[in-house]
């Protein structure tokens, strides 16, 4: 008979086994990132491991924009993509937060359908890109198309993050308390409801921004000329340059994502500390 006592198999090996699985998973997932980052400082990669450390040549190529990879500097591409992603996040906040609030707060006809449409990805990026080209041929080559596309593709993440925040608070009672104290509904929403859901909004913004900045499929279909979004910039570097140049471009992207995520978390934490 199997037993779950102190000397049983699960007691002896369960915890070490789980630890092993977690460590193996983390190593498997992070190894390519770490290796890519390290190799971006190598002069060459012949054989199993990169060699010729330490050089900033690859980073220099990416940052200054030589004609080795992409023909523009990473700076302009980064700024452009960051701006597009911010635009997408702003739309996601303006549309996603009210939808999440309505679904969490009210019981109305079609509520479950609204919820399903809000949290299901609308379409794969490539399909949405083709649809945009067909429906709005004039608009589709502009930055506006990219912003709208990013917001449509990433909106489920915002809705889910904010909805989770709303569901974890006593939404109806908080709202009713504020109104009984004399606040109108708009004031209650802006000064009580939204600040109380701030963690969810920040989390949703981080996810939406990160994914929008890295969105390739939609960008590849819709982008035609001018400064390329970051994902296209990376693609150009990866396809037209050596692997080490591509590694530097990918590292720039990872670094940027990490910095933005940390910055947004610091903003959130500082606000929480101020409250205390």
């Amino acid at each position: 008979m199997w037993s779950f006592g102190k000397g049983s198999l699960s007691a002896r090996f369960g915890r070490p086994f789980v630890k092993l699985v977690v460590v193996a998973t983390v190593v498997f997932l992070s190894l390519p990132v770490v290796l890519t980052f390290i190799s971006s400082f190598a002069a060459e990669w012949v054989g199993p491991l990169p060699s010729g450390f330490l050089t900033f040549g690859n980073w220099n190529d990416v940052i200054s924009g030589t004609d080795v990879g992409a023909d523009v500097s990473v700076g302009s591409s980064l700024l452009y993509s960051a701006g597009l992603a911010v635009g997408g996040v702003v739309i996601n906040i303006c549309v996603g937060v009210p939808i999440a609030y309505a679904v969490a707060r009210y019981d109305f006809l079609g509520r479950s359908w609204v919820n399903v449409f809000a949290i299901l990805p609308l379409a794969p990026g490539i399909i949405l890109g083709i649809a945009f080209l067909r429906a709005y041929p004039d608009l589709s080559t502009s930055g506006i198309a990219l912003v709208i596309g990013y917001s449509l593709l990433k909106s489920p993440y915002m809705v889910m993050a904010v909805q989770s925040s709303f569901q974890s608070m006593e939404l109806q009672r908080i709202e009713e308390s504020a109104r009984s104290l004399g606040a109108s509904w708009p004031r209650t929403f802006l000064t009580v409801i939204i600040p109380n859901a701030k963690e969810g909004i920040i989390a949703g913004s981080i996810i939406c921004w990160t994914l929008a900045a890295a969105e390739f499929n939609f960008s590849y279909i819709v982008y035609s000329r001018g400064t390329p979004p970051l994902s296209i910039f990376l693609y150009n570097n990866i396809t037209n340059a050596s692997f080490l140049n591509a590694a530097a471009a990918v590292s720039v992207f990872f670094l940027l994502i990490a910095l933005v995520t940390i910055a947004l978390q610091i903003v959130g934490n500082q606000a929480a500390v101020r409250r205390l």
Partner: peptide, 27 residues
Amino acid sequence: PEDRNVGLVFQGYALFNNMTVRQNVTF
């Protein structure tokens, strides 16, 4: 409700966690 001047205390108190205790009371 905002024009009735009624004080309300709920079961879970429904305090505003984005504010301090004093800000809750002065709200």
